[in-house]
Structure formats: structure tokens, C-alpha cells
Design a binder for these strands. Structure first.
Length: 85
DNA sequence: CATTTGACGCCAA
DNA sequence: TTTGGCGCCAAAT
């Protein structure tokens, strides 16, 4: 099954275990395009699915970035899960 | 089909 | 060390 970059991003993000966080660049690299970190955020933003814990995807700067439900809640959820940024 | 946007990352000053 | 600017890819309009 040939997965496109977008599909890979979904799969990678969905595979993030609780209490763990990945950077956009890490997700992009796992998806097969180390330089498409921009597209990763774009895809998640335009395709927010409840099955995808996008709140576990953070920036490389240590910031949580944005979130459809509110970046504030995203950070809160991460802390609640025990994720270390 | 071409252009703009976007939840970013890295380099230079 | 911190701030600013530039570059990248994919999707949406």
C-alpha cells in the first residue's frame, strides 16, 4: 500500500504514544519528507481528526505551537498526559 | 493551472 | 544568547 506524504503524517501522529511528543520536523522525517515540516502543520490544520492526537505534535523550539481547540488546551492536555516539552 | 496561505525550522546578524 | 529574515512543502482557493 503506497501511502502519500499526507497519509504517512496521519499514521505517524496517530502512532504517538501517550506521554510522548514529537516535533513537526520529526513527524515530517518519519513521513518521508524531512523538509516538509511546513506541510505537516498545514495538513493537520486543514484536516483535524479526533483520531489523530495532533496535540502531541510540538515545535522544535519547545513551544506547543497551535491547536484547533486552542493552543492553551493543547499544552494543558500534554501536561495532563505527563509529556515533557 | 497559478498563486497564497500556514499549527515551522534553520541560519545569520 | 536572542531576534529577524528566508526557505520549504503540500493543500486550499
Amino acid at each position: 500500500m503506497k501511502k502519500n506524504f499526507t497519509q504517512q503524517v496521519y499514521d505517524v501522529v496517530r502512532a504517538i504514544p501517550r506521554g510522548k511528543v514529537l516535533t513537526y520536523k520529526e513527524v515530517a522525517t518519519r513521513a518521508g519528507n524531512p523538509g516538509a515540516f511546513r506541510a505537516v502543520g498545514n495538513i493537520l490544520n486543514k484536516n483535524y481528526n479526533s483520531s489523530i492526537p495532533c496535540h502531541r505534535v510540538v515545535r522544535s523550539d519547545g513551544k506547543t505551537g497551535g491547536y484547533n481547540r486552542g493552543a492553551k488546551m493543547k499544552t494543558k492536555k500534554l501536561k495532563q498526559e505527563g509529556a515533557i516539552i
